[in-house]
Amino acid sequence: MLKERVWTAVLLAPLVLAGLFLSSFDVFKLFVAAIILLAAWEWANLSALSAPAVRFAYTSLIAALMAALNYYSPDALFGRVLPVAVIFWGLAAYWVVRYPSAKGWQATWQRALIGVLVLTSSWMALVSLHHLPRGGVLLLMLLLLVWGADIGAYFAGKTWGHAKLAPNVSPGKTRAGLWGGLASCALISLCFVFYLELDLLTGVYLLLMAMIAGLASVLGDLFESMLKRHRGIKDSSRLLPGHGGILDRIDSITAAAPVFVVGLQLIAVG
């Protein structure tokens, strides 16, 4: 299992990094859209839309929405949709904390509708971030924050983890892991504050945004775990050997990206 995970990561990492940082803006949009569409196929199953024809229709709907958003003045639309996504993740936090008693997400149509918002807003956030003057640097920062939160949580949880973070949703996550992940985010953000040569106030704000994005990344992971637990499956798919599905790899980004981008809109970092 570990060998599969390592080899999959080694083979995919150069492709992903090239798609994110070595492509033109138009190619980048298509590259991210392709990843989102693979995730949409998996989200359809999480919503109990298991028939191939229905899953194809759901994925096609996501594709049509992304194409429409890209065509009709994306900057203006993105500015309206992304704050809605941030508000949604506040509601998602309530559902995770109150699972399994909280209502409002269990029905097939509710989960499907949530997927439309989560997946399209993720695409919009990454596209918006890439389009900024310092978009490449900020995109790298976002990815490092997500990865750092995960790696820091793993090692802190292994070393000090006893108290569970959300036992009903994901028994493996611990409170110590959460703090370890946030500590990693703080260190990463400080490196970028110095690299970008930000003034004190802007630097403190970016540090705060990094911590919030780190929390959001944990929430994205927990929310997908909640959906999988409700659906009775372990992984979103078996597309990536040893890693599960696309959603299992980008669940943290789906929450962290909109939160990070909306936060950046308030300061002159990009």
Rank of each mutant, 00 (worst) to 15 (best):
T202E: 05
S47M: 05
V54E: 11
F194I: 12
V116M: 02
C185S: 04
L11E: 00
V97S: 14
A256P: 09
A156N: 12
A255T: 07
H230F: 10
R238I: 05
L69P: 00
R249D: 00
E4I: 01
S217A: 12
G148T: 04
R55G: 15
H131P: 00
I250A: 08
K234Y: 05
H130V: 03
L30V: 12
A92W: 03
L140M: 15
L264A: 09
W160N: 02
V84P: 03
L208V: 15
L198F: 03
V146Y: 06
L208W: 14
G263W: 08
H131W: 07
A107L: 15
G232H: 10
L38Y: 02
W160F: 15
L77A: 12
G157W: 04
E197N: 13
G90S: 09
I87Y: 11
L190I: 11
M211D: 02
L142M: 10
G115H: 01
W179K: 10
L138K: 02
F78R: 04
I35Q: 00
H230Y: 13
P241V: 08
M124D: 02
V6C: 08
V84Q: 10
P241E: 06
L145N: 04
Y72S: 11
G220K: 09
G242P: 02
C185F: 08
A93K: 00
T59R: 13
G172C: 05
G90A: 08
M226H: 07
V137F: 06
H130C: 01
L247A: 04
F260T: 08
A112W: 00
L17A: 15
A257K: 00
A44N: 04
Y58K: 02
S50N: 14
F194L: 15
A48E: 15
A112F: 03
L113I: 12
M66Y: 00
A57Q: 01
V137M: 13
R175W: 14
D150G: 01
R55F: 02
V27Q: 08
L182Q: 04
M124A: 13
I212P: 01
A67E: 06
L37D: 04
Y99W: 14
K3R: 11
P171T: 11
D75V: 07
L190M: 13
A176M: 07
V86Q: 11
H131G: 06
S252Y: 10
S189R: 09
Y58H: 07
L178K: 05
I62V: 14
L266S: 15
V81Y: 11
E4Y: 14
M1Y: 14
D26H: 15
E197V: 12
A186C: 08
V146M: 11
F194A: 13
V261C: 04
I253K: 00
